[in-house]
C-alpha cells in the first residue's frame, strides 16, 4: 500500500539510500513589495539516488520553480540547494553551467530540441558542447531502448511529438548525468506516447539506476514514480511512496479541499 504523509512541512527520503539532491528552507520570491510572489515558501526536501521522484501540485504551486532551482537554472532567494555535495548558491554562472553540463540532464515540456540538428546530433549535443566523445556502447544502448534507431538522421520537425520527447529523454540519458530533471515531459503528448515515454524513464531508473525528478500534474504519469512530493502554495504539503493512479487521485482530491 501507499504510505501517505500529509501536512508535513518537510520531508526527507525515508529510506536510507544516499541523497542525489536536496533543498533546505528554500525560498524563492518574484517581484518586489506589493507585487511580490512567494513561489517557494521554505521548502526542505531531499530526493534519493536511483529513485524516480515526482513533484505534483496545483497550477502555480511552485513545481517548476522548485525544479529550476534544483537544476541550477535559477537561484533561490534564501535557503540552499545541494546536488550531491555541491551547494549551488556558491557557484558562479560558469560553474553552474559546468554543473548542468556534467551532472544534470533535462527534459522540458516542449521545445527540447535544436531544430537544425538531426536526432542523433541532438542526443549527443551536451557531450558535443562539453567537447566529449560519446561512449559508443552506452549511446547504442540508449538508442536501442528509445527505439529511435531508424529516425536518427531526421530533423526534429520530421519527428512526431512523442518521438521528439524520446529524443530529449535519450539526450538526457546519453551524457550519463547524476540526475535527470523533467518538467511536464508528457504535457504535450497523447496517452499512448506518454506511456511510452514514462515506461522508458521507468526503465532507465530500474535498469540503469538513473535518478529522475519529474514535475507532472497527471496522476497516471506520477504513478510511474517511486515517490511523489505534493506542493501547494510553495510548500510541501504531502508525500507518497509507491503510488498508483488511484491513490494519487485520492490525495489530490483531498488536497483540493
Amino acid at each position: 500500500m501507499a504510505a501517505i504523509t500529509t501536512a508535513g512541512a518537510s520531508t526527507t527520503a525515508t529510506d536510507s539510500r544516499p541523497v542525489a539532491a536536496r533543498t533546505t528552507d528554500a525560498v524563492k520570491e518574484y517581484g518586489k513589495a506589493d507585487a511580490m510572489v512567494r513561489a517557494l515558501d521554505g521548502i526542505t526536501v531531499a530526493f534519493g539516488k536511483g529513485q524516480f521522484s515526482a513533484i505534483m501540485g496545483p497550477s502555480g504551486s511552485g513545481k517548476s520553480t522548485l525544479l529550476h532551482c534544483l537544476a541550477g537554472l535559477d537561484r533561490l532567494t534564501s535557503g540552499s540547494v545541494h546536488i550531491g555535495d555541491i551547494e549551488l548558491g556558491s557557484l558562479n554562472d560558469r560553474q553552474l553551467t559546468m554543473l548542468r553540463r556534467v551532472r544534470v540532464g533535462f527534459i522540458f515540456q516542449s521545445f527540447n530540441l535544436v531544430p537544425t540538428l538531426s536526432a542523433l546530433d541532438n542526443i549527443v549535443l551536451p557531450l558535443t558542447i562539453a567537447g566529449r566523445k560519446p561512449d559508443a556502447a552506452a549511446l547504442a544502448e540508449v538508442v536501442r531502448i528509445t527505439g529511435l534507431g531508424d529516425r536518427l538522421k531526421h530533423r526534429p520537425n520530421q519527428l512526431s511529438g512523442g518521438q521528439q520527447q524520446r529524443v530529449a529523454a535519450a539526450r538526457a540519458l546519453a551524457s550519463q548525468p547524476e540526475i535527470i530533471f523533467a518538467d511536464e515531459p508528457t504535457g504535450n503528448l497523447d496517452s499512448r506516447a506518454s506511456t511510452d515515454l514514462l515506461d522508458f524513464l521507468r526503465h532507465a531508473v530500474t535498469e540503469l539506476g538513473q535518478t529522475i525528478i519529474m514535475v507532472t500534474h497527471d496522476p497516471l504519469a506520477a504513478a510511474h514514480a517511486d515517490r511523489i512530493v505534493f506542493l501547494a502554495d510553495g510548500r510541501v504539503v504531502s508525500e507518497m511512496h509507491s503510488p498508483t493512479a488511484d491513490t494519487v487521485l485520492d490525495v489530490m482530491r483531498h488536497l483540493g479541499d
Binding site: 537554472l73 554562472d93 560558469r94 553551467t97 559546468m98 548542468r100 553540463r101 556534467v102 533535462f106 522540458f108 521545445f111 527540447n112 535544436v114 531544430p115 549535443l125 551536451p126 558542447i129 562539453a130 539526450r171
Partner: peptide
Amino acid sequence: REIGLLRALGMTRSQ
C-alpha cells in the same frame, strides 16, 4: 528559446 535551451544543456556564455 533555442539559445536558452543550449545554455540549459551546458553551453557557457562564451561558447
